[in-house]
Each structure stands twice: as C-alpha cells, then as structure tokens.
Design a protein around this nucleic acid. Structure first.
Length: 263
DNA sequence: ATCGGTACCTGCACGC
DNA sequence: TGCGTGCAGGTACCGA
C-alpha cells in the first residue's frame, strides 16, 4: 500500500493531496481517533462518522461527514496527511478507518485538525479561490485594498489559496515589483492571468517538491523545475539575465527580477 | 475596518 | 564536532 506523502502546502499541493488521498478514504467509517498532541486537534472526535468526500477550500482540506459535521485540516507549513504511512516522531493524529490509517504528521505544528458540526466561521470569511476567481472580481477586490501587492496576494481574506512561492511566480510573470502599492489596470489584468496560469500549471505538475517524497501514485511534484524567481536568488533571470534579488516584505521573503519587475 | 508586526514551532544548512 | 545564526511552503492575534 503506497503512502500518500506531500509537503509544501499552497493551493496546488493541497489540491494534489486532496486528489490523491480521496480514493483511499472517501466512503470510509472512522472507527478510532488517536490524538497524540492535543493542541493540534480541536473539537469532538468524529468516531463512528463516515467521510463522504475530500475537498479543497483555499489551502484547507474539508471532509464532510455523515450523518453530519466536517473534518477540516490545514497543513500549516510542514503538515502531511498520509494514508497507511509509518508513524513518525511528529505524527500527532491518527484516524483508524475500516481499511487502514489516515495520519497527520507535522514537525512545526503550525497546522490544525478540526472537527465541528458546522463549517468553521473563518472559512466563510476567506476571499474567492485564486484558481477560478473571475477577472472582474479580482480587479475590484484588488482596487478595494491597499498595501504592498505581495502582502495583498498573501492575504487569504483577499484571495484564498495563494502562498509565498506562487505569489512570487505570478508577480514575475506579470512584470510587477512585489513592493508596488499601485498597479495599473493592464498589469492587474496580467496578474490575474498569471496567477491562474501558474496555479493551473502547478496543479498539472502535482505541485512543487523540494524533498524527495512521493504521493499515492509514487510520483513527485515537479513544478519546482519551472520556478523562475522563487529560490533563485543570485541566479540569472530566465528572460533578461539580471541576477534575481531577494527582499523581505511583511516578514516573508520575496524573489524578483529588478529589471523585469520595476516599481 | 484594515494594515503591519509579532508569536507560534522544529529542523536544517551554513559559517566559525 | 559543536554551537550560534538565519531561514523555511502559514495563520492568528494584537495594537495602531
């Protein structure tokens, strides 16, 4: 039995986890729950309930249950949701299902596993999904907010699903400096297209893998080979050859080409 | 109501 | 070898 094992939780990686794990757990009854690190788990244990489906909401994994309620998982920075994987030092929650184990492992413990009768309120407050938001809605929301463009893209209340890697990649493809506070309509239109292109391509590549883990089908994500700025500080821009720079915006690293992306 | 800074954690790469 | 430093894919919360 293969182990479902993906790190890297931005939208494409969460989508890959959802798609690869759903066939193993959808329709299965939860027989037992072992919570080894209580602060990771919120709510009542969903013992006896059945996992109806596995869906993605931004970077959250949402599993509706029967006869009611939801199991919601957020992977934080280092969370892993795996099927029949060996238990490790940082395996914090284990669901025993009819045909095997669903386990949550997270070294930095920024992620959460939550069970509730209704969908958590904060999910409803998130912005539209970055993969499918219509252009007009994106432009309107962009205009209604202030701050550096990179900060706005990382704000899940503005748009849900985008993270540090794909924000940098989209800004590069749209030719926008991450520290820009104003963006022309032309650039904003290009940014909307770039976000959806880069996310769709990353989903197609099953996400970006920096370590050598594999998913249920024994495949790695491969999108890291298509990164044009993220993690390429000092390397030549693929378009003009200028050295890629790294700066800090809202406590997060931002990678950009100083020639292709001017303020 | 929004925005920007800070807190929450562990592990790893790197320089000395 | 060991130690200190900086860095890492994210969100929640606080005060201004």
């Amino acid at each position: 039995m293969p182990g479902v094992f993906i790190k890297l939780p931005e939208l494409p990686e969460v989508e890959t986890v959802v798609r690869s794990i759903a066939p193993y757990i959808a329709g299965q009854r939860i027989e037992h729950v072992d919570v080894r690190l209580p602060r990771i788990f919120k709510g009542e244990q969903p013992i006896g309930r059945t996992i109806l489906d596995v869906t993605r909401f931004g970077k959250f994994i949402v599993m509706p249950l029967a006869p009611g309620g939801f199991l919601v998982v957020h992977l934080g920075m280092t969370g892993k949701l795996r099927w029949n994987a060996p238990r490790e030092k940082h395996t914090h929650v284990i669901f025993t299902l009819e045909g095997g184990e669903l386990s949550y492992t997270d070294a930095r413990t920024f992620g959460r596993v939550e069970c509730s009768e209704e969908l958590p309120e904060r999910l409803a407050r998130l912005g539209p999904d970055a993969l499918v938001v219509p252009q007009a809605e994106f432009l309107a929301r962009l205009q209604s907010r202030s701050g550096k463009i990179k900060s706005r893209l990382l704000n899940q209340m503005f748009l849900r699903g985008l993270g540090n890697i794909y924000a940098d990649e989209a800004l590069f493809r749209a030719g926008i400096h991450p520290g820009s506070r104003t963006v022309s309509k032309t650039r904003a239109v290009a940014l909307h297209a770039a976000i959806q292109e880069v996310l769709a391509a990353a989903v197609e590549a099953r996400g970006s893998s920096i370590s050598d883990y594999v998913d249920a089908d024994n495949q790695r994500g491969t999108f890291q080979t298509q990164h044009r700025v993220y993690g390429r500080k000092g390397e030549p821009c693929v378009v003009c050859g200028t050295a890629i720079r790294r700066i800090v915006i809202t406590q997060r690293s931002s990678h950009y080409c100083p020639a292709c992306q001017r303020r």
